[in-house]
Design a protein around this nucleic acid. Sequence first.
DNA 1: TAGATTGTTAATCGATTAACAATC
DNA 2: TAGATTGTTAATCGATTAACAATC
Lengths: 210, 210
Amino acid sequence: MEKKKNISMAVIKRLPKYHRYLGELMNNDVDRISSKELSEKIGFTASQIRQDLNCFGDFGQQGYGYNVRELHGQISNILGLTKVYKTAIIGAGNIGQAIANYTRFEKLGFSLEAIFDVNPKVIGLRIRDVEIKDIDFLSDFLKENPIDIGIICVPSNNAQKVCDTLVKNGVKGIWNFAYVDLVVPEDVKVENVHLSDSLLTLSCLLTDIE
Amino acid sequence: MEKKKNISMAVIKRLPKYHRYLGELMNNDVDRISSKELSEKIGFTASQIRQDLNCFGDFGQQGYGYNVRELHGQISNILGLTKVYKTAIIGAGNIGQAIANYTRFEKLGFSLEAIFDVNPKVIGLRIRDVEIKDIDFLSDFLKENPIDIGIICVPSNNAQKVCDTLVKNGVKGIWNFAYVDLVVPEDVKVENVHLSDSLLTLSCLLTDIE
DNA sequence: TAGATTGTTAATCGATTAACAATC
DNA sequence: TAGATTGTTAATCGATTAACAATC
């Protein structure tokens, strides 16, 4: 096993979109596609598509294009969708509950193992068969049940503390919905969903200036 | 009023982060900050910070740095936070309800005017004093009540249809949580929150390849 | 074989960083 | 005035696009 060292973040950020479009093509029983055709659907240039894919291997065939099913499988592989990731949600507020209720993530191979919260009113409740546990037991739980991805949905002021607990107990992936930038060791990966940033970006695009 | 024509998306995407960090500095009663100090906090280079800010004006002062309160105000202005945006949520499922329950967006000047759904079980319910309306009345509602930003939280297969209705009734900003790429006229801006893409990016970062 | 389309190198474009004169 | 720090130009770096030989 060797790290994907030289793959730029720009490329990685495009991979999920390839995965999605190829999945749709598969569902529509399309067998093959050229970079040119895919380009028209997905909105990247054909050149960029070929460059991106060639970061990972020679998946195409001259004169033919790409086999949709095979390419989808390759990208699934690159995205790490061939294994099951164990996840835990910390914070069962609005966003935590929303994420817990999603079923799409399960289908992609992300298994929700536990939910934690501080609020006695929600502790003991169940979301899709997963009981909300007292956050005081987070550390103990992680020691017994290794988790791959911690999904942080607590208020910003508690997020770093929760993050530290996760990291201390071996969690290597953090999906962070709190509006803070978390500090983690180098081997821990953080992916932020900063909804306010997203909304402000939109607001900026809608605004003219003097 | 003149368009921010030559500002790259890379710069725009950083603005919310400036806004957030400067807001925190203000809360901590910091009066002035140099690009170097801000660089250490925010994680961009000092040079990049100065370049970014100079896209919009000369906000600093040689030998002194930037006045925190003034710079925060300028960025609020650039982000369009000086006006109130009227928003409507379409789709009162998990994510729609979560967004509706957020109060931070109200504080930033985004006012939730209405919520729509197809499900008779939720129509008539209220989230923070906003009643969930029948989606059949969306078009009529928009004609009477101009909306700046439509927040699409319906399932992917209905998203484009909802989007078309919004656009047809003058909505210029779409905050899209559905997992599709929407087609809109050039003068309509779409900001996507594709949670699956985000999770898959994280999964990719956690994965080694052969 | 002829046509199509890849993989890949080279050229271009854009974004980031470095440097420094201007100036508070 | 001396020191600090900006605004801005120039240099570098990286990402995208174009071009085309290789080859199915």
